[in-house]
Every structure is written in C-alpha cells, then in structure tokens.
Write a protein that binds this DNA or RNA. Structure first.
Lengths: 240, 240
DNA sequence: CGGCTGCTTGATCGCTCTCAAATGGGGTGG
DNA sequence: CCACCCCATTTGAGAGCGATCAAGCAGCCG
C-alpha cells in the first residue's frame, strides 16, 4: 500500500519516539494507516471524559493539554509540540480521555484509531517497548513536577516551568530565547499551581531585573543562567 | 523446572497484575526465576539513585516509597502492599531507582533481575501489555494527586489521602477501619505536601469531631462518610 | 526507669490567594 | 483608517492558610 504522507510527515514520523526503531515494513504499516487531522487555534482535538478513540502525533503546531477539576479549577498537564504524541490513553487501556487537547496555533497532526494502534502493537514488539519507554518518561516528568509543587515556592516553580518550556520550545532570537507559542500568565499559573496574579508580579519583577522580556502572550528569556539560579536556589543575587 | 515457591507465593503471584493472564508456561517461567528477598522494619530494599537492578513484588508486609529533594525535603511517593509491584523502573528503561524503598513492617518479597524481566517480556506479549497497563494506572494516580495538590486545601488532601489508604490497607475492626501499617503524622505530611504540625492539628480536630481515632503511628477511621464529605467538599457539618 | 521517638499545642510570621479596579495592546468592524 | 472593545496584564490592599519556631508531653522499648 502506498503511503498517504508527504515527505515532511514521513520524516517527522521517523523521529517520533513511539515509531523510531521500527523496521521498514512496520513503518510502512504505520504510515499508511495514518489520518490527517488539522485544527485551527482554539479548536479542541478532544475533550476530557470523551471516549478515547484516537491517538495523535503533532506534525506542525502546538497543543495544550489541560484538566479541569469538579470545582472548576484548571491545570495544564503539558504542551505537545512537533513529534510529540498526545491522547495516548488507548495505549494502556484507557477508555476516556483524562484531559482536553486544544490547538494553540494552527495544528497539523496525524492520528490513528485505537483499534489500529492496538493491532500494530500486537504485531510489533518494538513498538510496545517504545510505548513503555514513552510512558515511563511521562511518569517521571509528572513525578518531578509533583515533587516541585510539594516542596518549592512559587517563584522557583515558575522558573523551572519556563526552563522546561525553553528546552521544548525555545527559539533563539536577537533579544534572547523566545518561547515560540502563545503563553499567557494564566497558562503559566495553571502549569505551576498558582494564580495569574502571582505569575504577573513575578514576571514583572524578573523583567525589571533583566532576566526576561515579556508581553502579551509572550515570554523571552534574556538570561537563562539567572533563571537557573532561581530554579536551583543558588540565590546569589548579582548575576550578569 | 520445578518452581521454588511455596503455595502462598504462587497464589499471590497469580494475582499480581503484571503476571495475571499469563499462560501456564510463561507463569512457570516467572515463578522459577523469582528470588526471595526478606527485609526487617526500617531496612531498605534499595535507595534513590542506586542502579536499578531488580523489580519486586510484595508477598507479605508493607513498603514505603519516598523521594528526597536536593534541599532535604522528603515526599512519600506511595505505599506498596501485598501483590503490589515496586522498583519497576527497569520495565521502561530506567537505569537508576528514582526513589527509596523502605520496609515498614517485616516484608517478604519476590524479586527478579532486570535482565530476567527483559527476557520474559521479550517472550511474552501479554506481560508487556500488562506492564503498559500497570504503568498507565500509576500515571493516572500521580496525575490525580498532582491535581489535588495544585488545587485543594490541606484538609481535603489529607482526607483524600486517608481514604486512599483505607482502600488499599483498610482493616475493619470494632472501633472502625484501621490502616494496618505504622503511619506517622510525618508520613501523612509527606504524602500530602504539608508539615507534620498541620497534619497533627487537623487529625486532632477530626478526633474531637469523632471522625477518627488516632494514636502513635496509628489511624482508625470511625466515620468514612464524614471524610468523604470533606474530601468532596460537601461541607455539611452535622453528619452522623 | 531513663531515653528516644512521635505527638500536641501555642505564638507568630509571611507567602500567596482573593477581591477590586485600572491600564493597554491588538484585532475587528464600521 | 480610525474607534471601539475585548482580552490579557498590571497593580494595590487586605486577609488568611499554613509554615516556622519553640516548648512540652506521652507512649514505648530496652
């Protein structure tokens, strides 16, 4: 069967962790069963508690995954960028999505039916191993954030969060490292378990200290070292 | 090959999620490659950052899994009881243990070398699927606790934690439901991201309200409904 | 019967949330 | 092209939850 994918998608797919290290036959099988799904900003791929039918891989764009509590509080679970997988509950037997996936920018993604994925995993040992590894990574990530939330002050958590975002979506510019997707104070708050007010105050202070430049839905890190110092609590104030 | 296990161990093993649904041949393979490991209270199975060589299943007793931050704060990751697996990082490619495992009571466990497990998973599709599912469950659990920590007050988090413990280790007695392993205020604090002082104050209050009876390393839940009311924020004060 | 470990309780402090209101950027429609 | 409006952000004032500091108490084991 001929693959339905353009060259860009195919290349990208080879770098998705879940599919890396597959042999050509397996890979072709994956590629030929992919569906294209495109969403505009603010559109949802799926919503929390909906039946989990498909899993997605981001081809282009940025996706925000959020959870809502019964009381109406929202938290950001994570951001998914190019090559990242999301909606992967079907991999391990989940029936419903535990979170909502929203397009932050225009998003091109590839999707697979959960039956298809189950079938493919059935056939490919390697893919199942990859899935295990991916899940393990995610578990470790949540644990780390949990630890941070349980033991650290807001300021450090925000510093940590920004550094993580820089690593995943940082783009070098003349003014510093830009986080290249729209990021509001509210988002940062929901990512770190605080309020937008507190985030705003801290970012303003960091702006005055020359650590960052921030604007409407935008953050540029000017002095990553300074942020690391805060994140690691080396609070030696006078850093260049 | 003859299994090295006594009847109790064999029965228990069949109820471990990772091994359930395996066929007899696979199962025998598991059973015959198990090592017995016994620890006295306060002894460690392994420590955080040590190379992860083995995975364990609790046969009898109770194990506490903790993480330590560079600043010296400690948190409780979870408690493992009979039939629970712990130290499972090798399942998904971890090199070192991310936590410390301590025996709370005298513990009899079964252990497997990570090579052995890798081998067995290589051979058994079913087991790999089980591992995925197990990991998924754990991920969901951490996410839930994360959400709780990010959005709820201390009192609710403690109520929730106690209810979870009741479910995993509750034992009906004449005075109420006892959590049947030594549980200090400090432990509860590290489980819910607070301090032992705050835990103590809240437990004292609950004691006065007749919700619980607590003592040295001991908690008995007298009125689970009352705790649920707190956990779910139904704060209707006058419950029977 | 010490001594240790775990628990209680009081007093105080401060980080962070809450409530309130003003400001401003940027896109949209007239 | 301009005016308007919405949404994101900033900023202030105040309150309070829970941390921190500091003793004192009480089971329990040796």
């Amino acid at each position: 069967m001929r693959s339905l994918l353009d060259a860009r998608s195919a290349t990208l797919l080879k770098n998705v962790r879940l599919f890396r290290t597959l042999n050509p036959a397996e890979f072709e099988s994956i590629a030929s069963s992919a569906q294209r799904v495109v969403k505009e900003p603010h559109e949802d791929f799926f919503r929390q508690t909906q039946p989990a039918r498909r899993i997605f891989v981001v081809n282009r764009g940025r996706v925000k995954l959020t959870q809502l509590t019964p009381e109406g509080y929202q938290i950001v679970v994570r951001y998914a960028g190019e090559g990242d997988m999301f909606g992967c509950v079907p991999l391990f037997g989940g029936n419903v999505y535990p979170a909502t996936a929203t397009a932050l920018t225009r998003c091109e993604t590839l999707a697979w039916d959960h039956q298809t994925i189950a079938q493919l995993m059935q056939e490919s040992h390697q893919m199942m191993l990859n899935a295990l590894e991916e899940l393990g990574r995610e578990l470790q990530d949540v644990r780390e954030r949990y630890l941070s939330l349980a033991t650290e002050r807001v300021e450090r958590r925000i510093a940590r969060a920004l550094l993580r975002l820089v690593q995943k979506a940082g783009k070098r510019t003349s003014k510093g490292v830009l986080i290249e997707f729209p990021l509001t104070r509210q988002d940062l708050a929901e990512l770190t378990g605080t309020t937008l007010h507190t985030v705003s105050r801290i970012l303003t202070r960091w702006g005055k200290d020359g650590l960052i430049v921030s604007g409407r839905r935008k953050v540029i890190i000017r002095n990553p070292h300074g942020l690391v110092a805060i994140a690691e609590d080396l609070h030696a104030e006078g850093q260049s």
